[in-house]
Design a protein around this nucleic acid. Structure first.
Lengths: 163, 163
DNA sequence: AGTTGATGTTTAGGAGACTAATCACTTTAC
DNA sequence: GTAAAGTGATTAGTCTCCTAAACATCAACT
């Protein structure tokens, strides 16, 4: 009918990101389920593992830090971590200097599970991203990185307008 | 420590998509909130509007069809639509031929709201995707389209293995 | 020392997503 | 024409995420 039926480049790319996420979620859910994990739970385990092995944060991470890295609010971290603690994959270590909070670390059981997942992860991610050629992946990543920098600035600005 | 700390191109691009989605969600939530909508509710209204105006589906869409288009399972559609019906934005029309289901259409109030959102939408999406130049957006979209085709094939294959 | 304010986490309540099971109808097959 | 299989939608129960409000502790100022 009208010529406005066509989507602009912005809208097409925007929709592409949303759809990619939805499809990735669909593919990754059964994968994580193999290990008895959800995507959100894996994200926390991986974050703790990375902090310990790649950043030397042997004392662990605070709840808040995890939330910031995963773009998730504190209450979400609370319940998620609570389940992981019950499953003996994560433990809370009292910080002697500040009795409000504590540090989160992987238990030996948690580390073992993370290593088991990591063994399969390389191939799984390659499978998921297999629609693109080796020289295209860095370009896609480059676009997304710049988009994400822009989005982070936008996201940081918006809550301030509600004051 | 180890050389394995670096992420592969697949992992970097994969993480980029997840982060883009998270940041987009953060930016779009308050935007939709202006109109009293959530992102999921808007997706349904927009889907019904597109079907009616661009596809000539004046009779409306079935619950199932909405779920398929939005990559969402039937129970999610049920509760979401129920709220929109209560808000008088959507109505269920009995299909005379099949008494199991019904067709969903926008009410006049719903159409008015969709048009009001669409007025702002162009600019909002441009703002969100503003981190990229005009000639980059189609390239990003191209990559995502091919990725999504690949992912859709993967997603279609996986549930079959559970039979 | 004692309020005041800032910070870290939890609680309460709600929306959106899922799976598995159920209900209501249609269609198919005997 | 009735039983069986299939299809459209809902219910029940769980998980993840949110905002707003409470709670607990720390820091700072008088």
């Amino acid at each position: 009918m009208t010529a406005l039926a066509h989507r602009t480049p912005s809208q097409a790319a925007f929709g592409g990101v949303l759809r990619s996420f939805g499809l990735i979620h669909r593919v990754m859910r059964p994968y994580f389920h193999q290990f008895g994990l959800s995507q959100a739970q894996w994200a926390i385990l991986r974050t703790l593992h990375r902090a310990a092995t790649e950043e030397g944060r042997t004392e662990g991470l605070r709840m808040m830090e995890i939330g910031q890295r995963l773009l998730v609010q504190p209450p979400s971290v609370t319940t998620l971590v609570h389940r992981l603690v019950k499953a003996r994959l994560v433990r809370q270590v009292k910080a002697s200097t500040d009795r409000r909070g504590f540090m989160l670390r992987l238990t030996p059981k948690g580390e073992k599970l993370v290593n088991r997942v990591l063994l399969a992860h390389h191939n799984q991610i390659r499978l998921v991203m297999g629609g693109l050629a080796d020289d295209e992946l860095p370009r896609l990543h480059g676009y997304l990185e710049r988009l994400n920098t822009h989005l982070a600035a936008l996201a940081a600005k918006i809550p301030a307008t509600l004051d």
